[in-house]
Amino acid sequence: MLSDREAEMLINSLRMDRCPDCQHHLQSGARGGAAQILTCTHCGASFSVAPPRYITFVRRLK
Rank of each mutant, 00 (worst) to 15 (best):
Q27W: 00
Q27T: 08
M9D: 14
A7M: 12
A30E: 10
L10V: 03
Q27F: 01
Q27C: 01
T39I: 07
R53F: 03
A7G: 04
S13Q: 14
C40Q: 07
C43F: 02
M9N: 14
P52K: 02
V49A: 01
K62L: 09
M1Q: 12
F57S: 11
S3Y: 01
D4I: 02
R59H: 07
L61G: 08
K62Y: 09
M1T: 13
A34P: 11
E6A: 15
T39K: 12
H25E: 13
S48G: 00
Q23M: 02
G32P: 06
L38E: 04
R59N: 09
G33L: 05
S46G: 14
P20S: 07
E6F: 02
I37M: 08
R31A: 07
H25Q: 13
E8A: 15
R18K: 15
Q36P: 03
V49R: 05
C22S: 13
G44I: 06
A34N: 14
C22K: 14
C40A: 05
P51E: 10
D21G: 06
R31E: 13
S13A: 15
Q23T: 05
F57V: 06
G33S: 03
S48P: 00
I11M: 14
F57W: 02
C40D: 04
D17E: 13
L14S: 08
R5P: 02
H24Q: 10
T39R: 14
D17V: 00
T56C: 03
T56F: 00
L14R: 08
R59S: 08
G32F: 03
K62C: 13
E8I: 03
G33Q: 06
C22W: 05
M1F: 10
F47A: 05
S46T: 14
H25I: 08
S28P: 11
I37D: 05
S13V: 01
A30N: 04
I37N: 04
C22D: 15
R31G: 12
C22M: 09
H42M: 08
C40V: 10
R53A: 08
L61M: 12
